[in-house]
């Protein structure tokens, strides 16, 4: 097959800008997130619940360092069938209707604004402005299976699979620059949007679970089946030998 030649203007007007845009959007998102996140006031109920969950988790994990009676005492406090904390506390599910609570609505809007909108807007804009170019060629041969991945919206059957179209170059950047944000902005940055998406799917985006009664039930069960195994039993043996 004859070698394809790309106009070198594509390099400076499509290839380079796309990478710069993806990177800068990530940085801007990070600072916007810092700018917009104000300290939320938590209400008492929510606070008690999350702290109780935290403590119960600690008991499950580190209970092995306590003497048996102390462990059982705490376990009983949380999981006793009649008067345990998790049993007694009846919480109605706190999934609020966002329309009725303006505060929740602004929070939600902010979250959406920061996660969804850039994805949709930037992605749409790039599709509109840069669609249909071939940008570059990856420096290694690929099989034809990769064609739909690397040549989005360029439908040429006979084209070598190593060519990358502009839309695909944007997507490759989106994922490949993830660890670069870690490098530039430090850990736990907001620019890492792919991680935020994963969090949303598993429902762990907030430290506070939406449905507290469900979380209580789950924690109650896992604490109930936790047996006490004292880690310090027989510790003197390691000193005697």
């Amino acid at each position: 097959m004859a070698e394809l030649l790309l106009d070198s203007k594509i390099r400076f007007w499509v290839f380079l800008p796309l990478m710069a845009i993806t990177f800068l959007v990530g940085i801007i998102k990070h600072y916007l997130f810092i700018f917009m996140s104000n300290d939320k006031t938590v209400d008492k109920q929510q606070l008690t619940d999350s702290q109780a969950l935290l403590r119960s988790r600690l008991i499950r994990e580190n209970g092995k360092y306590l003497p048996k009676e102390s462990f059982l005492m705490r376990k009983n406090y949380f999981t006793n069938e009649d008067s345990g904390f998790f049993v007694k506390q009846k919480r109605q599910s706190t999934v609020k209707n966002p329309m009725s609570d303006p505060k929740a609505m602004t929070e939600m809007l902010k979250g959406n604004f920061l996660n969804m909108i850039p994805m949709v807007v930037i992605g749409g804009w790039i599709n509109w402005a840069y669609a249909g170019f071939l940008c570059t060629k990856v420096p290694f041969p690929l099989t034809f299976r990769f064609k739909p991945m690397l040549q989005k919206d360029v439908n040429l059957v006979s084209l070598d699979a190593s060519w990358v179209s502009s839309a695909s170059w944007y997507i490759i950047n989106l994922f490949g620059l993830r660890s670069m944000y870690n490098l530039v902005l430090g850990e736990n940055n907001a620019a890492d949007q792919t991680k935020a998406m994963q969090d949303q799917m598993s429902g762990a985006a907030l430290s506070m679970p939406d449905d507290i009664s469900k979380a209580f039930k789950a924690e109650n069960e896992s604490l109930t089946i936790t047996e006490h195994k004292w880690l310090l039993k027989g510790i003197e043996q390691s000193f005697l030998n």
């Binding site: 606070l47 008690t48 702290q51 109780a52 935290l54 403590r55 600690l58």
Partner: peptide, 9 residues
């Protein structure tokens, strides 16, 4: 009372 609120402080 405080510790009832902040059990993990």
């Amino acid at each position: 009372e405080y510790l009832k609120l902040f059990q993990a402080d």
